[in-house]
Design a protein around this nucleic acid. Structure first.
Ligand SMILES: [Zn+2]
Ligand SMILES: [Zn+2]
Ligand SMILES: [Zn+2]
Ligand SMILES: [Zn+2]
Lengths: 135, 135
DNA sequence: TTACATAGTGTTATATTATAACAAATTTTA
DNA sequence: TAAAATTTGTTATAATATAACACTATGTAA
């Protein structure tokens, strides 16, 4: 019969917070999330941070390190957050997850001269997005 | 006679903080720096953060975003922090600036499918360093 | 089904990281 | 030298994140 774990299901708080991030068009910060979910009974920072930690760990969301904010994963290929890349607009703050197989392969195969073997990478590109350039 | 600005010189606080970071073998956090330089008269967070901001801006140091910590630039090629890459050991926390011309060129030339032109990138690789692997 | 283990929750308090705001001093430029 | 720009010193506070502890819910296996 094999494994019957609830492998892919989220707990109540995890689901609430994932839904919020997933439907957002922009990265959300922890305390913005906290404020938004207070009506649903999530009232304290640890509740938010624990859910965020778990969601990051399982690859459902990613942390944009340069912004201390979180986005839902839009890329089924970035298996458990081992290989993430984002484009970030310095004007409107828009963040877009980059899904580029060649880039991903190139970086996953990159070997450090000093012999360190990498398990994971995170890449953040910065620029001005198309929309902002027009304005 | 051309420009006579003090283009490359650092102010007193900037120099003190740069020296500290530059001689450190590991990334330093802002409040660790603050504690270390109190004997030199730098007593409050804004003094540290202002110097750090300026040093980052001029490319003398880089911020390791995933650690909220700062390292001195070891790579004359990463011109004003436009193209930075680091290897980070998840065991001993060691950080090493990667200086790889091919990698840098590849990423600097990378074009987003959605047409965004990048001005800058930051790449962080994670793994276990040689030294930690032996232990 | 019962007990054991694991994961998740609620809560209070506190630690860590970073900035706002304002006055004064210094350095650069004109 | 006077104006402009940068740097400094200072106090207060904002924003981000974790420690610790008691409790509940869920999954596993005898
Ligand atoms: Zn993803
Ligand atoms: Zn934009
Ligand atoms: Zn550098
Ligand atoms: Zn190591």
């Amino acid at each position: 019969m094999g494994k019957m774990y609830k492998e892919n299901s989220l707990s109540k708080n995890q689901q609430i917070i994932f839904d919020l991030i997933n439907k957002s068009s922009e990265p959300l910060k922890a305390y913005t999330i906290l404020f938004s979910v207070q009506k649903k009974g999530i009232k304290a920072p640890p509740q938010v941070y624990r859910a965020l930690d778990k969601l990051v760990e399982t690859g459902k969301i990613h942390k944009i390190e340069s912004k201390n904010a979180f986005v839902a994963c839009r890329n089924s290929n970035c298996e458990i957050s081992k290989a993430t890349a984002f484009s970030i607009c310095e004007s409107c703050e828009m963040v877009d997850e980059i899904s580029d197989t060649k880039l991903s392969k190139y970086l996953s195969g990159f070997n450090h001269k000093k012999g360190m073997k990498f398990k994971r990478f995170n890449l953040e590109f910065f620029g001005i997005c198309k929309k902002c350039k027009k304005d």
